[in-house]
Design a protein around this nucleic acid. Structure first.
Length: 933
RNA sequence: GGGUGCUUAGCUCAGUUGGUAGAGCACUGCCCUUACAAGGCAUAGGUCAGGAGUUCGAGUCUCUUAGCACCCACCA
C-alpha cells in the first residue's frame, strides 16, 4: 500500500518520469501506416539559446497536442532540432573571443568556425535540457542540427536548383548593411524606430543664375548631410512652379565642387521641406530607384565599415560616418552653405541584432527572385505560397492572420540571402578569374561545369554564407529525407500543425510555405496555429534590458530572491538601470518565486492560450494552478484512502449499485470527455483547461467526493462497491484527460490509481489510450435530479448563512414536497446542509422561521429568529423576483416576440413566469402570515 | 499613409451560428467539518468604451466616434 505525501510537492515527483518515458521509447512514432500520422516540427530554437517564456508557452501547446494524439493512437512525431542561428551565434562567440582580446580575423575563417563548433558542443544542449524539464516529449533520437551534413546538403541542393531555374541571381544592389557586423541583412532584420534628429537646409548654388526668378541657389533639406558627398543630382517635382523652369539646369555641389543636374521626378513631395531633394543613389533606397529611372551614376562614399572612402574629398576620408556628418555640417556652415537646422523626428533603421544604424550599401549579393514565374508552372514562388493559403490547403488559426500573410506577400521584395559572415552554410558558388560563376553542389562539380563551359583556370569559392532563414525555410522537407521519398517524407509531410508566434510569420512561415510548395508540391503543414507573445503581468514585453524576464525553469524549481535579483541585474546593456530593476523585482517577488512545478506552469500556459495577440503572465495564476495540482493530489489521497485494500467492484462480477449521484458524475464525465477532445481539436487549450479545472474542483471534489462520504458510510455493500469503483474510474479517466497538459502529476497518480481501477493496460499513462465518451452512460434523469438536489442544498446553505448559523449548529429541516424523493435525498442532505432531522409535511407550519421556495418545493429551517430579520430577507427575495418577472411578462406581452421567437424560448419564458409567480405568491403569503403572528 | 486587433466585475481574461452577463485572482463574512487552510461554505461587485442602426430581442451583426496596442511601408 503506497501512501501519498500530505501535499503536492512537484519537485519530488517530476524527477524520474521524463527519463523513464524516453527510455521506454514512448516518444517515438509508431510508423504504423494504418494509423493517421500526426507530426509537429519544433520551431528549432537557437543553438546559443536558453529556454524563455515564449518557448515554454509554445511547447506547452505542442506537447499538449502531441500527447493528445499519441494517446489517440496516431503515428505521432514531434521532431526536434536546433538552429545554427548564423548572426546570433557568431555574435555570441565573437564577444567571447573579444573578452580574451582575440578577433575572429586573428583565427581565420577555419579557426573561427571550429571555435563555434566547439562552443556549440559545450553549451548547445542547455535548451534541450530545459525542454525536458518542461516535459516536452520530442523524439530525441531524430534530433537534428541545421548544420548537419544531410541538412547542409539539402541546402546546397536547393540553392543549385533554384539557380538553375533562374530563381536565384547575383547582382550589385543597394542592400541593408550592418556596418558593425559587416554584413548585409534582409528587410525583415531591420527595425525602424522614431528618433530625434535634425533637418539641415543646405544651399546648392546654381551654375547659371536663374534668369526667370533670379535665384542664385536651391535649398535642399536633408537628415543625412554627409551623404551629399555622393549626390549626383537634385530633383524637384515636375509641376512645381517654383522650380519648373530650372529643370535641366545644374547646381554646384558644395564641398565637392561637382556640377550636378536638376532633374524632375514626381516622387518629390512639393509640400515637404523646400521641395528640392538631393539624390544619392548609392545611399538611399528611394534615390536608388530615382537613379535607375534617370540613368544616374551611383557614387558610393562609404567603406563597408561606414567610414568615408577614398573616392570622396580627401579631407573626410577615413572619418566615421557620424564624425563626417559633423565635419560636413561645420564646413557647410563655415562656407555659408548652411541655411538652417531644425529639429526633426525621423525613423532610424537599426539592425535587430546589433542595434547599429543600418546603412544602405551598394554591394554584390545573392537574391531569391520572389515574383518571377518559373518555367514549369508559370507561377512565382510567392504566387504558389498565396495559392495554397487561399485554397485552404494551409489554414491559419485564427483566420485573420491570412490578411497579414497576403499583405506581406503582395508587397514582397526579392530576398537578399547572402550574409558576409563565417558561421553558416557557405554559398555553393565558385568564381573564375574573370568573374565567371559556377554554381554546383561541390567544388569538383563546379570544376566539371567550368570545364564544360570552356573555362580552364582556377576557381575560388564565394566567401559568403546563406541567411539562416534560408535553411529554416526548408525544414519541412529537409528533415524528413527529401529529396528521397522516405517513409518519414510520406508520413510527416505535410506536418499537422505549425505552432508559432506571429512575430515570425514572415521570417519563417511564409518562406517555408514558398519553398516547400515549390520543391515538393506539397504544403509544409496543414494548420498554422498563431499564438500571442508572452508578456509580463503588466502586459509589457519581456526583455532582458527591462529586467522583467522570467525563466521558466525558475517557475518550475523556484528561486530565492537574492538569486533572482542577481539574474535580472547582471549583464545588462545599460547597468545604470539595475537599481530600478531590483526595486521592482523585490516588490513583485518579495520572497522570490516558490517552486510551482512544470505541471502548474503548463496548466497556466494552457489556460492563457486564447487566440489573442498577447499573453500576460501573472505568477498568481500559476500559484492558483499549483493549488489545483494540490487539490487533485489530495482528492487522489482521499480516493486511495477509501479504496486501497477494499473491494472496489472492479475485477469480480460483484453486485454493484449506482446511486443517482454516481450516475450524475459518470454523465458529467462523458460530457467532459467530449468537450476536452473538441477543445484540443480546435486549439482551444484555454477552454480545455477551464473544463478540466471546473470538473475536478467543482463537480468531482466539491460535490461528488462529499457525497461519496455518505455512500461509503451509510450504503450497503453494493453501494459501497459502486461508489469505490466510480471514484476510481472517474479519477482514472480524468487523469488521462489531463495528461496532455499536466504530464507529471498525472503519471505519478495514475501509477497508483490505474491498477485499482483495473485500468493499467500500459506501463505509463503517457502510452494509455485517450478516453472516449460513451453516450449510453449519459443518464439525464440523474443529471436533472442532481441539479434539483444541488439547488436545495445551496438554498439551505444560503439560509443558514443569511441567518448566521454556526456551521457546527445542526437544525431541523421541514419540507413540503415529493416525499419519496426527499427520503432518497435525506442521507445526503443532512450532512451537507447540516440538518439534524428532516420532516416532510403537507403544509409548512406558520412560524417566524426562514422559508425558501424551490420549484414546487417549500422548506424551512426550524429555528427561532428575529422576525424583523426574516421580514428583511423576504423583502430581499421579492426584490430579486420582481424585475425578472416584469421583464418576462413584458416579453410575453409582445405579440411579435410570441410570434417570431423560437417556440422553445417562448415556452421557456412561460414556464419561468409560472415558477416565479408561485415563488412570489409563496413569499407574499409568508410575509402576511408572519406579520400576523 | 495602408492594415489588424483590443476596450466586459477592483485586476487578468472567457463569452462558439443574436435568446435572462461568466471564471480565476483580489475583497467581505463565517468555519482548523478526519482528502486538501495551497482548504470549505456563503455573500458583494458589471447601464459589456460612447453613439446610431438592423431585429420581437444585440456583449454578440452593421455603421460611426473616442482611447489603447500592434504590423507593414515611409518624406528627403
Amino acid at each position: 500500500m503506497t501512501e501519498l505525501a500530505k501535499s503536492f510537492e512537484p519537485l519530488e515527483i517530476e524527477g524520474q518520469w521524463y527519463e523513464r518515458w524516453a527510455d521506454a521509447g514512448t516518444f517515438k512514432p509508431s510508423m504504423a501506416t494504418d494509423q493517421p500520422a500526426y507530426c509537429i516540427q519544433l520551431p528549432p530554437p537557437n543553438v546559443t539559446g536558453t529556454l524563455h517564456m515564449g518557448h515554454a508557452f509554445n511547447q506547452t501547446i505542442m506537447d499538449g497536442l502531441i500527447r493528445y494524439h499519441r494517446m489517440k493512437g496516431d503515428n505521432t512525431l514531434w521532431l526536434p532540432g536546433t538552429d545554427h542561428a548564423g548572426i546570433a551565434t557568431q555574435i555570441v562567440v565573437e564577444r567571447q573571443l573579444a573578452d580574451q582580446g582575440v578577433s575572429r580575423h586573428d583565427l581565420g575563417r577555419a579557426g573561427f568556425v571550429e571555435k563555434v563548433w566547439e562552443w556549440k558542443k559545450h553549451s548547445g544542449s542547455t535548451i534541450t535540457g530545459q525542454m525536458k524539464r518542461l516535459g516536452s516529449s520530442c523524439d530525441w533520437s531524430r534530433e537534428y542540427f541545421t548544420m548537419d551534413d544531410n541538412l547542409s546538403q539539402t541546402v546546397t541542393e536547393v540553392f543549385v536548383r533554384l539557380y538553375e531555374e533562374n530563381l536565384i541571381y547575383r547582382g550589385k544592389r543597394l542592400v541593408n548593411w550592418d556596418p558593425v557586423l559587416g554584413t548585409a541583412v534582409s528587410d525583415l532584420e531591420v527595425v525602424s524606430e522614431e528618433e530625434d534628429g535634425s533637418l539641415w537646409h543646405i544651399r546648392y548654388p546654381l551654375v547659371e543664375t536663374d534668369a526667370v526668378k533670379g535665384l542664385t541657389h536651391l535649398v535642399v533639406a536633408t537628415t543625412r548631410p554627409e551623404t551629399m558627398l555622393g549626390d549626383v543630382a537634385v530633383m524637384v517635382h515636375p509641376e512645381d512652379e517654383r522650380y519648373q523652369h530650372l529643370i535641366g539646369k545644374s547646381v554646384t555641389l558644395p564641398l565637392c565642387n561637382r556640377q550636378i543636374p536638376i532633374i524632375a521626378d514626381d516622387y518629390v513631395d512639393k509640400e515637404f521641406g523646400t521641395g528640392v531633394v538631393k539624390v544619392t543613389p548609392a545611399h538611399d533606397f528611394n534615390d536608388y530607384a530615382v537613379g535607375q529611372r534617370h540613368g544616374l551614376a551611383q557614387i558610393s562614399i562609404l567603406t563597408l565599415d561606414a567610414k568615408i572612402n577614398e573616392e570622396s574629398p580627401e579631407k573626410y576620408q577615413g572619418q566615421d560616418r557620424f564624425a563626417a556628418r559633423k565635419a560636413v555640417v561645420a564646413d557647410l556652415e563655415a562656407e555659408g552653405f548652411l541655411e538652417s537646422v531644425k529639429p526633426h523626428k525621423l525613423m532610424v533603421p537599426r539592425g535587430d541584432r546589433t542595434g547599429a544604424v543600418i546603412e544602405p550599401m551598394l554591394t554584390d549579393q545573392w537574391f531569391v527572385a520572389m515574383s518571377k514565374a518559373d518555367e514549369k508552372t508559370g507561377k512565382s514562388i510567392t504566387q504558389k505560397a498565396k495559392d495554397v493559403v487561399s485554397s485552404g490547403e494551409v489554414k491559419f488559426y485564427p483566420e485573420q492572420w491570412v490578411n497579414t500573410y497576403n499583405q506581406w506577400l503582395n508587397n514582397i521584395q526579392d530576398w537578399c540571402i547572402s550574409r558576409q559572415l563565417w558561421w553558416g552554410h557557405q554559398i555553393p558558388a565558385w568564381y573564375g578569374e574573370a568573374g565567371e560563376i559556377f554554381v554546383a553542389q561541390t567544388e569538383a562539380a563546379a570544376y566539371e561545369k567550368a570545364k564544360a563551359a570552356g573555362y580552364k583556370g582556377t576557381l575560388k569559392r564565394d566567401e559568403d554564407v546563406l541567411d539562416t532563414w534560408f535553411s529554416a525555410a526548408l525544414f519541412p522537407f529537409s528533415t524528413v529525407g527529401w529529396p528521397k521519398e522516405t517513409p518519414e517524407f510520406n508520413a510527416f509531410l505535410p506536418s499537422s500543425v505549425l505552432v508559432t508566434g506571429f512575430d515570425i510569420i514572415f521570417f519563417w512561415v511564409a518562406r517555408m510555405i514558398m519553398m516547400t510548395t515549390h520543391f515538393t508540391g506539397k504544403v509544409p503543414f496543414k494548420d498554422v496555429y498563431v499564438h500571442g507573445l508572452v508578456r509580463d503581468a503588466e502586459g509589457k514585453k519581456m526583455s532582458k534590458s527591462e529586467g522583467n524576464t522570467l525563466d521558466p525553469v525558475d517557475l518550475i524549481d523556484g528561486i530565492p530572491l537574492p538569486e533572482l535579483l542577481k539574474k535580472r541585474t547582471t549583464g545588462l546593456r545599460r547597468p545604470e538601470k539595475a537599481p530600478q530593476i531590483a526595486t521592482k523585482t523585490e516588490k513583485e517577488f518579495p520572497e522570490g518565486i516558490p517552486a510551482y512545478g512544470a505541471d502548474a506552469l503548463r496548466f497556466t500556459f494552457a489556460s492563457l492560450a486564447s487566440l489573442g495577440r498577447s499573453i500576460n503572465f501573472d505568477q498568481k495564476r500559476c500559484q492558483g494552478y499549483r493549488n489545483f495540482c494540490n487539490k487533485l493530489w489530495n482528492a487522489t489521497r482521499f480516493v486511495l484512502m477509501n479504496t486501497q485494500d477494499k473491494d472496489c467492484g472492479v475485477n469480480v462480477q460483484a453486485i454493484v449499485e449506482l446511486s443517482f449521484v454516481d450516475r450524475w458524475i459518470i454523465s458529467r464525465l462523458q460530457e467532459l470527455e467530449a468537450h476536452v477532445a473538441t477543445h484540443f481539436d480546435n486549439y482551444r487549450f484555454d477552454l480545455a483547461a477551464q473544463a478540466l479545472y471546473e470538473f475536478v474542483w467543482s463537480d468531482y471534489c466539491d460535490w461528488y467526493l462529499e457525497l461519496t462520504k455518505v455512500q461509503l458510510q451509510q450504503g450497503n455493500e453494493a453501494v459501497q462497491r459502486g461508489t469505490r469503483r466510480t471514484l476510481l474510474r472517474v479519477l482514472e479517466v480524468v487523469l488521462r484527460l489531463m495528461h496532455p497538459i499536466m504530464p507529471f502529476i498525472t503519471e505519478e497518480l495514475w501509477q497508483t490509481v490505474a491498477p485499482l481501477a483495473g485500468r493499467k493496460l500500459t506501463e505509463f499513462i503517457a502510452q494509455a489510450s485517450w478516453p472516449l465518451p460513451d453516450a449510453s452512460r449519459l443518464d439525464q434523469k440523474s443529471v436533472a435530479a442532481m441539479e434539483q438536489f444541488q439547488a436545495l442544498i445551496n438554498a439551505c446553505r444560503t439560509l443558514r448563512s443569511d441567518m448566521q448559523l454556526s456551521p457546527a449548529q445542526k437544525v431541523p429541516l421541514i419540507v413540503k414536497g415529493d416525499e419519496a424523493l426527499l427520503k432518497e435525498w435525506a442521507p445526503y442532505l443532512m450532512p451537507l446542509a447540516k440538518i439534524s432531522e428532516l420532516n416532510v409535511v403537507e403544509e409548512l407550519p406558520v412560524t417566524q422561521a426562514p422559508v425558501q421556495h424551490l420549484g414546487t418545493m417549500s422548506f424551512m429551517l426550524h429555528i427561532e429568529l428575529d422576525p424583523v430579520k426574516e421580514q428583511q430577507r423576504i423583502e430581499g427575495e421579492l426584490a430579486k423576483i420582481e424585475p425578472e418577472l416584469a421583464r418576462l411578462i413584458g416579453q410575453l406581452g409582445n405579440p411579435q416576440f410570441v410570434e417570431r421567437a423560437p417556440a422553445h424560448l417562448v415556452e421557456q419564458s412561460k414556464a419561468r413566469v409560472i415558477v416565479l409567480e408561485e415563488k412570489r405568491a409563496a413569499f407574499l403569503k409568508q410575509k402576511e402570515q408572519s406579520l400576523s403572528i
